[in-house]
Nucleic acid binder design. Sequence first.
DNA 1: AAGCGCGATGCAGGTCCCGGCACACTTCGA
DNA 2: TCGAAGTGTGCCGGGACCTGCATCGCGCTT
Lengths: 313, 313
Amino acid sequence: MTLTQLGAFVLVARLGSVRAAADVLGVSEPAVSRALAALRQHLGDQLVIRNGNGMELTEGGNRLFGIASQMVALGSEAEAAVRMAHGAPQSVRLLVTSTIAEFIATPLVEAFGRRWKGMFETTSGVASAAEMRVLLPNRLADVALGPEIATDPTLGLASEPVLRYRMVVVAAPRLRLHGTPGRWQWLVDPSGTDPDSDTGRLLRAYRVPEARIRVFPNQTAAWAAAADGAGVAPAVATLIAGQLRRGELVETELRAIHGCWYATTLAPDRRSDGARYLRNFLGTPEAMHLMCAPGTGVPPSRFRPPVYVTIWS
Amino acid sequence: MTLTQLGAFVLVARLGSVRAAADVLGVSEPAVSRALAALRQHLGDQLVIRNGNGMELTEGGNRLFGIASQMVALGSEAEAAVRMAHGAPQSVRLLVTSTIAEFIATPLVEAFGRRWKGMFETTSGVASAAEMRVLLPNRLADVALGPEIATDPTLGLASEPVLRYRMVVVAAPRLRLHGTPGRWQWLVDPSGTDPDSDTGRLLRAYRVPEARIRVFPNQTAAWAAAADGAGVAPAVATLIAGQLRRGELVETELRAIHGCWYATTLAPDRRSDGARYLRNFLGTPEAMHLMCAPGTGVPPSRFRPPVYVTIWS
DNA sequence: AAGCGCGATGCAGGTCCCGGCACACTTCGA
DNA sequence: TCGAAGTGTGCCGGGACCTGCATCGCGCTT
């Protein structure tokens, strides 16, 4: 399986013709046909089959198509990325939990970029604690901001506390709660599916069964549902201050628990430059301040959609 | 540039040693060293350099590393995907706007899966209208749900209206608005950055300058900021019913405009099976009902983080 | 029924990749 | 200062990949 073969296959699938693909690639038609034949034999699937006038993808070909497209594109991207690297800013990859991504990551990344103007180009991605634990030692990310990851220092990771916060449980003012917390309806953001997050630990501490948990696409939506009386929602105290002030939500009688965000990197002697600078920045008063204030939106030109990180290999 | 070479490079970068990588791969050490040399020459970058005891990545190597990891992983994923395709459910890829992704996509995909149990496996991704226009004809997606895309039928795309809705502009009850709408502060979700979305068209119609727009990571967060008195926010009437009922937000005097979601696929004779079935499902009363009701969260086991689609090549 | 377009395949040549072996070179530690 | 470990590089053989030319088979068109 070669990149050339995959490229030929992608083009055939897109254009629906071997000959057309050959013309685009600037090679003879048999060359493309052979590449296709090699792929077919290697993967044990016809991939594309003649269908009267045109070619049709098999189900296997359909699945391969998306993956192959990415591989081909990544190939050229790789060349471009390496050539661009000369004199370009260093890239820093920050991993965060979904809650941090929603409120804090964007202003934090922007402030870091301003602090060391032009030196770094930071991207942030959403990941669970388990994924962070894999991505960091494999150098697929530089810094993780979220729950404590490295309780065991032998793995080469170092987690340091960055910010302590109060975590409260809120509900609509008129909501009447019956029974133990384990019988309430809990409305959480995606970090609730991560057993290592503060939300996950909270749910486990109160023995909330899966049936009593509803996951919302983001923290604000979970709070909106809570304001509608659908149940209770955990929240970082400083981030929900607005809703409490306006009276949409109130704290329940559950006592607040304390959480902490940690910055995790490789051990100090193995850190990349970017990891070092970003780690230090997270300890500055400016970063502290940003972490306490909920996001206020960004201008369109500076908006970047979040990246959800998946583990490759 | 070969997949074998990239695999060798990734392993060297991860393990920090050519010899260790060779041991893992089960080949001799010079073989790995050669692969590395070939990559270095091809890309014109040292990629990794000896640093006393261990190897250090150059900035170019750092960038290549992430991309190469993906490529290697995608390689094995491709083989697995094709082999799994025999007898497995067909995969259907649905593109949606960020607003639809937030409230509607998950229950819609789930209902579709229940309707044709086991026949299809649907994934949804967030994309702008411009991206949809590229992804659909290239068969990188099967169905798009969002603004009208195919005004010109010669491209081989067919957009059909699915659901009409009222779009209102809301604000905090006590907010006093001065001047023309173009001077207000507008709080929008990521679809506001897409000029072809209804939100984008609305902003253009009122000539709102970039400085007066704040983009929030999701629609609910934009509404929460509006409830806090930070400005006005556009909203699909049926999705914001809860906040209006609770009195957190009220409609402004701007008259409601009408929007419509369209389902776009390839022309009928070129549609895949999945596209055909999903397109028909979108016209059923069940789908209509789901599109009018805001999301209520899902159990943890059924939660899937959103995929943000980027265009490959 | 004949013609035509298109894809698949046998044949042959060139190129490049991949593997191992041997050996020069650098760096670290004793 | 000298060994040890590890990396980079000739050298070479085997094999896989890429290419073009010619040819065959298939289905659609006329």
